[in-house]
Nucleic acid binder design. Structure first.
Lengths: 334, 334
DNA sequence: ATCATTCCTGAATACGTATTCAACAAGTTA
DNA sequence: TAACTTGTTGAATACGTATTCAGGAATGAT
């Protein structure tokens, strides 16, 4: 391993001068700059980022705590976050949510040395919020939020639920099932409540058996759907809390022999790119911002890290949803 | 920031003792261990990984240089790699391939301080190979390989091409187009050559206009397909070098009004989970290992890092492909 | 000619941890 | 009792860089 001292010796200067050539060449006379640069090349010198971080107290890395990539939503956000961070000179270490033990992930992240954290994996009243706050490290939430506030970017989930209910009711559906994940998450809670509220507005009571909570894995969704159709009363439509869930539901229903939308309508929330695929043509509800939530989150985080925005000046962004009508919903047969 | 010195002072011991309690508690008497542990709790002490790394020369982080996540293949491998690394106590920093400037990514990775590198983004005769070798850091390639060797996990790409040609020819197809990415990559090159060789075996010359090279983005694939069907001679089948490409091709063809497989057969390579989705039912060619290539790669890398395997003892794994028959291919109409 | 200023450079040090080594006490062997 | 081992602890130091500070040379102003 060649160090700045080795370069210094080779170039006949002191180590601080090498450091200056690296970070502040204008403070060094031109001939010496050239000389040191040549030494660096000759010795194939690469500065040690670890040593740099130790003194500067900045690591140029951010941690991403993301939902699982089997949900295409997180595919898009991860791509946006990693690439934007890279364009700003930041490394991104990624951690995928562990449904049963997120705490150990945060433990890892907090003892890691990062300049900031972007995260989606948080519950509405998650105790991790206070720990993050206490750590003093800037963090921004995307997709989900915490009851306390902080920096976040989210969809108006309640409104998304309302739009979904509205749409399906307007097509004549009355027996509608809701399928999603844990209501400890602001996304699922909001989408469920908006949906339920709007149904109630229309004089429809959301049957408890029609509320399906899963862990959002393919396996659990198949289980839930199969169980749903064992019941005497069957739904004519399904409102899935995310496109990812809808995609699994569709696979399951098709395998069971249903035709969509003739026998069952499905719509969901997120409006991912894949929903527009001709093989799917999924009716979905999403925002129309040209920036993904992940991108907005990482942009804000980096602004905070670089002191272009004050930490206390909380950015709380709620995007407005709208309906993207495609082929998986249709009017109920008379 | 509370340091081991602060803990030491609080507990009335020296800093090395705190360090020992952390890393080698058996070297410290029980009462002092308890005392120091209490001090750590009281002060909410977290060891500084940066300082640790500086002295130990190990960062417990690996770099992943991956293809883009819009290819579901890399979704699976990224998940496997990140999660396995985490289970072994390693952080993963991820970098997504930049089609036009991979060199700057590797520049970044090499000046980062990592214990090892897992990568897919490499060309057959990529000059980066030598730089990686020279850096002394262990690295393992997956999916793609380099002519020189090194550690890698790949599919027998030539054989995959052979199987694809075999299958389509056996269904009576003669006008078959190939669509893939740059033949600088071992995957595309192997799949193209195997395909072409097998066609030639059957007396079919692969027309140059039927070889479509793209940058594997949706946009470029749509462009290539549309251009293909402007020609006088149209193919009756398409062999896509990856499932990801096939998915974009299918979207494009359906939008153009073709029915699959009645008017056009499609098969591809990778056999991703999504290919079995009822809406897609993509005929595909893949290996039948229960481990993903990403998982095999990261397992080998960590073994090397932890000296359970010698660096020189090169692991070169080639998985054998087989055909998974689904609904996107059918016999040509008489 | 004197003084002030600017520019450039290196010696010393700090960052937070792990490790080496010496010192010392307590216990063990002859 | 003397010599030797074992166990426990702290002082000193190393890791590779950035920064502070002081000193010397060169320049400009008076």
């Amino acid at each position: 391993m060649v160090s700045s001292r080795d370069v210094a010796k080779y170039a006949g200067v002191s180590q601080p001068t090498v450091s200056r050539v690296l970070n502040n060449p204008s403070k060094v006379s031109q001939p010496i700059v050239d000389n040191v640069r040549k030494a660096m090349k000759d010795l194939n010198y690469r500065p040690n980022n670890i040593a740099r971080s130790l003194v500067s107290n900045r690591t140029k890395t951010i941690a991403l705590v993301s939902g699982p990539l089997h949900n295409p939503f997180f595919v898009d956000t991860t791509t946006a976050i990693v690439n934007y961070a890279a364009s700003k000179g930041y490394y991104t270490t990624v951690h995928f949510e562990n449904h049963y033990d997120n705490m150990s992930i945060y433990e890892t992240v907090l003892s890691q040395q990062v300049d900031g954290i972007v995260l989606s994996s948080i519950f509405i009243n998650d105790p991790i919020f206070d720990e993050l706050k206490e750590s003093g490290k800037p963090f921004v939430m995307f997709n989900r939020r915490h009851e306390t506030g902080g920096h976040f970017v989210e969809l108006d989930n309640h409104q998304a639920g309302v739009i979904g209910a509205e749409h399906l009711v307007s097509l004549g559906h009355k027996a509608i099932a809701w399928i999603g994940g844990t209501t400890e998450a602001s996304t699922f809670l909001g989408r469920l409540e908006g949906f339920r509220d709007k149904l109630k507005n229309n004089g429809i009571q959301l049957n408890k058996d029609f509320i399906l909570q899963t862990d959002t894995t393919e396996k659990d969704i198949h289980r839930a759907i199969q169980q749903l159709f064992l019941r005497r009363n069957k739904p004519t439509a399904i409102f899935a809390a995310t496109d990812s869930i809808a995609i699994f539901v569709i696979d399951c229903l098709l395998k069971m022999g249903f035709s969509i939308p003739e026998e069952i309508s499905i719509c969901s929330v997120d409006n991912l790119g894949i929903s527009a695929h001709e093989s799917l043509q999924l009716t979905s509800i999403g925002h129309n911002s040209n920036k993904s939530m992940g991108l907005i989150a990482i942009q804000n985080l980096i602004k905070i890290i670089e002191n272009q925005r004050k930490l206390e000046d909380e950015q709380q962004i709620t995007l407005e949803p709208e309906l993207y009508l495609r082929q998986t919903t249709s009017a109920i047969k008379p």
